[in-house]
C-alpha cells in the first residue's frame, strides 16, 4: 500500500533521514520505534508531503507521492495525527471534528463517522460545543485521533499518541488503536512506548539516527536482546 524506498530527507544541511525503506501493507498495523531524533516524525511528515525527500521514492498504491501536495495526500486517504496533538484550541470540539472531514463531500458518511467517533470517545460527544483548549490532555488526544478519523483514513499515521498521558488514558488510546485495526484501518504507529506498541502491532521498524536498524514481525523484535535492553527496559543478564 505504502512503500518508502531509500528515502533521504534534509532539514537545511542536517541529514535527517539517511535512506529509509519502510513498507506498510493493506490492513497492517506497523509500528516505528526509536528514541528522540531517530527520524520517526520526519518520516511521517515526509509521507504527508510537508517535507520533500531529496532522494528516494515514496509510492502509495503504486503512485509516486513525490510531488503531491499535502492536501491531495489527505484526499488520497493518508491521514496523520501529529505529535503533540495539535488540536485547534480556539475551535469547538465539533468544529475540530468538522475540520478533520474538510476534504470530504459525502455528507451522510461524514455524519455517520461523527456519530461513530462520538461512540468511540463518548467524552467528545458530551463536549461538542466546548472549545478544544478546555479539554484535558487525554481528551485532547482523543480529539486529535477523532479528528483524524473524521477523514475516514485508509492509512492512519499516529505520532506518539500516548506521549505525556496518564496510564489509564494510554490504555484507552491503545484499546481504540486495537479496535481500529480490527476494523481494517491500516495504521502506521510511531511510539516511544515500545512495550505497548509491540503488543498491538503486526510488524515493526526500529530507527536510529535516520536509519532503519532493525525490522520484522513484532515477535522477532521482542526477542531481540538489543530491543529488550534499550527499548523494553528489561534487565539483560
Amino acid at each position: 500500500m505504502l512503500k518508502l524506498e531509500n528515502v533521504h530527507v534534509y532539514y537545511g544541511k542536517i541529514h535527517a533521514l539517511k535512506g529509509i525503506s519502510v513498507e506498510v501493507r493493506e490492513g497492517e498495523l506497523v509500528t516505528m520505534l526509536g528514541s528522540n531524533g531517530a527520524g520517526k516524525s520526519t518520516t511521517l511528515m515526509t509521507i504527508s508531503g510537508i517535507l520533500q525527500p531529496r532522494d528516494g521514492h515514496i509510492t502509495y498504491d503504486g503512485h509516486d507521492l513525490g510531488k503531491v501536495s499535502p492536501y491531495d495526500i489527505v484526499r488520497s486517504g493518508i491521514i496523520q495525527c501529529p505529535e503533540g496533538r495539535r488540536i485547534f484550541g480556539g475551535l469547538t470540539v465539533l468544529e475540530n471534528l468538522r475540520m478533520g472531514a474538510v476534504r470530504r463531500r459525502d455528507q451522510r458518511g461524514t455524519q455517520e463517522d461523527l456519530e461513530w467517533v462520538c461512540t468511540l470517545f463518548p467524552v467528545l460527544g458530551q463536549r461538542l460545543r466546548q472549545t478544544g483548549a478546555t479539554l484535558s490532555g487525554g481528551e485532547q488526544q482523543m480529539l486529535a485521533i477523532g479528528r483524524a478519523l473524521m477523514a475516514r483514513p485508509r492509512l492512519l499515521m499516529l505520532d506518539e499518541p500516548s506521549l505525556g498521558l496518564a496510564p489509564l488514558i494510554v490504555q484507552t488510546i491503545f484499546d481504540v488503536i486495537r479496535q481500529l485495526h480490527a476494523r481494517g484501518v491500516t495504521i502506521l504507529l510511531v511510539e516511544q512506548n515500545a512495550r505497548q506498541a509491540l503488543q498491538v502491532a503486526d510488524r515493526g521498524y526500529l530507527l536510529e539516527t535516520g536509519r532503519v536498524v532493525l525490522s520484522g514481525p513484532v515477535d522477532e523484535l521482542r526477542a531481540n536482546p538489543d530491543v529488550e535492553r534499550f527499548y523494553l527496559g528489561g534487565s539483560a543478564t
Binding site: G90, L91, E95, V102
Partner: peptide, 21 residues
C-alpha cells in the same frame, strides 16, 4: 467551512495542512 478553516489555519497552520485544508 472556509471560515472555520481560516480560524483553524491561524491557530496551527501545520495541523491545518495535515487535515487537508
Amino acid at each position: 467551512e472556509v471560515g472555520i478553516a481560516m480560524r483553524a489555519a491561524s491557530q496551527d497552520l501545520l495541523a491545518a495542512q495535515l487535515m487537508g485544508i
